[in-house]
């Protein structure tokens, strides 16, 4: 069995338009990969295809998680296999409290590790403090009337409570102020130090979150393809020069 979140030649269509044109990417346990790229290049499409969103049709390639065929699993089974997505735009569940949702989801994800209510409450409170969240959030309805920043923190709270094997963070950093960004970075690192096996795919526009998460590899996606890979310095280069030089490089290579 090959460990890791392994994507090979993945092609994905939305409403019969091909968006991803063959993606190869491996997130090893314990590693941090950053996925960068201009708006509309297909980053979120990759995260939805891997988590099994019904609107995204895989037309070719493979994706495995520690050896199990992700594409053969239904979305909730992929989550139970250990895959977590922090949504760019998380949905609201009116009438369902954060506390009940966290408890229900954690029970579904970790049926062998159901905590007694007091322990569970302690775990949630601890993680919320780390994220700088107000304790009243637990009795609010999931994402209902939440600000952008509150939604992102709640995504991170879920990651902290569920402790997934692999997490995709889809622009979790965008729309966060400096303090929120630091809290998110620290929370993700706390998950990683609790479980050094957690592999991360951090989708971002901006390298600033990478100050906290220190990527091992940076991938650049353009027009549904990974066009460039490199170390952390690649993110700094994008920060400085934008995507245009890379775009020209790629176009030059093709021509």
């Amino acid at each position: 069995m090959e460990k890791g979140l392994i994507v090979r030649g993945l092609r994905v269509s939305v409403e019969s338009i091909e968006i991803l044109k063959g993606i190869d990417l491996t997130v090893e346990p314990g590693r941090v990969h950053a996925l960068m790229g201009p708006n509309g290049s297909g980053k979120s499409t990759l995260s939805f295809a891997l988590t099994g969103h019904p609107k995204y049709t895989v037309t070719g390639g493979s994706a495995t998680l520690d050896g199990s065929d992700l594409l053969a699993l239904r979305p909730h089974e992929r989550a139970r296999a250990g895959l977590f997505l922090s949504f760019q735009y998380p949905a609201a569940i009116p009438g369902v409290s954060v506390a009940n949702f966290l408890r229900g989801a954690r029970t579904a994800l970790r049926p062998g590790d159901v905590l007694p209510p007091a322990k569970f409450k302690k775990l949630v409170t601890e993680k919320m403090q780390l994220l700088g969240m107000d304790s009243s959030v637990v009795s609010r309805y999931v994402n209902d009337g939440f600000s952008g920043g509150e939604k992102k923190r709640l995504e991170m709270l879920q990651m902290a409570v569920f402790q997934p094997k692999y997490a995709i963070l889809d622009e979790t950093d965008s729309g966060l102020d400096v303090d929120a960004l630091r809290a998110v970075g620290e929370s993700v690192n706390a998950v990683r130090s609790a479980n050094s096996e957690t592999g991360l795919l951090v989708i971002t526009h901006y390298p600033r979150i990478l100050q906290y998460l220190h990527p091992d590899t940076v991938h650049v996606m353009m027009d549904g393809r990974i066009v460039k890979q490199g170390g952390a310095d690649l993110a700094e280069r994008i920060e400085r020069d934008g995507y245009d030089p890379i775009r020209e490089e790629v176009a030059g290579g093709v021509a």
């Binding site: 909730h76 989550a79 997505l85 949905a91 009438g95 369902v96 579904a108």
Partner: peptide, 26 residues
């Protein structure tokens, strides 16, 4: 999207529908 969100948290679709409907009436 709400249904998918629940599923992405390991909740099976039937349970997710129960949860969403209970929330609707809450």
């Amino acid at each position: 999207e709400t249904l998918f969100f629940c599923q992405s948290r390991g909740i099976d679709p039937d349970e997710a529908r129960r949860m969403i409907v209970a929330g609707f009436f809450s």
